[in-house]
Simulated scan of single mutants.
Amino acid sequence: MTSVIENRQTDTAQLTVEPIAGYLGAEVSGIDLKDDITAQVGDALRDALFEHKVLFFRDQRLDHDQQIRFTEYYGPVTGAHPLGYTDKSPAGFPEILEVDSRTYASRAGGRQYSYASFWHQDVTALVNPPAVTVLRAELVPEFGGDTTWADLAAAYDNLPASLQRFLEGLNAENRFGGRAPQWSDGSESESLTRDKPIISEHPVVRVHPVTGRKLLYVNPGFTSRIVGLSARRSDRILDLLFDEVTNPAYTVRIAWTPDSVGVWDNRATIHLAPTDLGHLDVVRVLHRTTVEGDIPVGVDGRKSNSVSGEPFLSTRR
C-alpha cells in the first residue's frame, strides 16, 4: 500500500512512501535529496523512518557534502567511526566511512566486500550507539551485493509473554566482535580493538526513545554475553535470541543501484552486509554517515553503562 504524505511537497514533486516488506522497509520517491528540505518534509521523512525503520531513495546523485547535509536532518552527524579508520574517510570528510571493496585484504577464495559481513547493528559497543545510519551507493555490481535488515521490534513482539518478561530484567555486554571476533591475527581490527577497547552493557530489551516500542536489543556482531550468567547459560540464551532476531520473516532485502541512498533506524534494526560476492571480480563502493545516538533505556528505566570507552558525539555543535 502506497502512502502519499499530503501537503508536504518539495519544489518539484510529491513525497511518496511505498512499503516493500511485511514488517519493515519502504522506498521513497518524489524528492531530490540535493535540494533544501523544508521543515514539513523533514518531519515527514523522520516520521517515515520511525514507522518503516528502513528507507530507500533511488537516483540520488549526491556528493559528500550533500550526503552529510541530508544526514543532519536526522540529527547531529558523528565522525566516521569511533575507532578512527581515518584511512577509510575521503580527504576532507572525516564524517564519512568509505566502504570500498578495493581497500580490503583478499581472503582465501575471494574478496571481502564489507568490513562487517555478518549480522550486526552499527557499533553497539558504544554506550550511545548511532541512532541513524545513511549509506550511499557510488559503485555497485550489476547483480548481487544486496543488504538485508531485520526488525528488532517484530522480534520482541513475537516472543511469548513469559520470555519477554524474563528478558526485560537482563543486561548484555557488547564489544567489537561479539562472542567470536571474525578478524585475523595481526589485522587492523584486532589491533584497534585491543589498543582502544570499547565495551558497554545494554538492556536486552530496549525502549525506543521516539516510538516507545520495545526492541530485542542484541546482535551477533557485538553482543558477547548476558551479564551475571555463566558462559554456558549465556550462550544458550544468546543462541536463542540471535536465531529470533535473524528470522527471515522479520527481514527486508534490498538491491543497491548506482546513486541509491539507504537510511535505517539503527536502534530498531540489525543488518547483514553481502556475502555473495567473494568469488566475483567486481567493485562495490558505498559511503556511510551516522547520527549521534542516545543512551539506551530498558523497560524498567535502567540505562546502559560504559565499561570502557567514551560516548561517541558529533563534533558539529
Rank of each mutant, 00 (worst) to 15 (best):
V204H: 00
K53R: 14
I254L: 07
N171V: 07
S306T: 14
V307E: 01
P19A: 05
K34I: 06
R233I: 09
F50D: 04
I295T: 15
L192K: 09
S114Q: 08
R107D: 02
G293C: 11
L163D: 13
R136Q: 15
R179E: 07
I254D: 00
T246G: 03
D195V: 04
L49P: 05
F56P: 00
L229M: 13
V28N: 08
G92L: 11
I270M: 07
F242K: 06
R107G: 09
W256R: 04
L163Y: 14
W183P: 00
R58Q: 12
T12E: 09
D294P: 04
G22A: 14
T315D: 06
S224A: 09
F93K: 14
H271Y: 07
R253F: 00
P130L: 04
T86Y: 02
L24S: 09
P274C: 02
Y74R: 03
T223G: 04
A21L: 11
V307R: 13
H120C: 06
F57S: 03
G169W: 07
R46C: 06
P160Y: 08
H120E: 05
S29Q: 13
F93W: 15
F143S: 15
Q66F: 04
G22W: 09
V210P: 02
E51F: 01
L49C: 04
G301F: 11
D47S: 10
E18M: 14
V210S: 02
P76W: 01
E201F: 01
S162R: 10
W149Y: 07
N171K: 10
R267N: 13
V291E: 00
D265V: 14
Y115E: 05
P160M: 05
V307H: 04
V134C: 07
V291Y: 02
I20Q: 04
P129H: 01
L229K: 10
G177D: 11
G177M: 11
V127K: 08
S234L: 06
N7F: 07
F93M: 05
S114G: 02
P76Q: 00
Y115K: 07
P197S: 03
R61S: 15
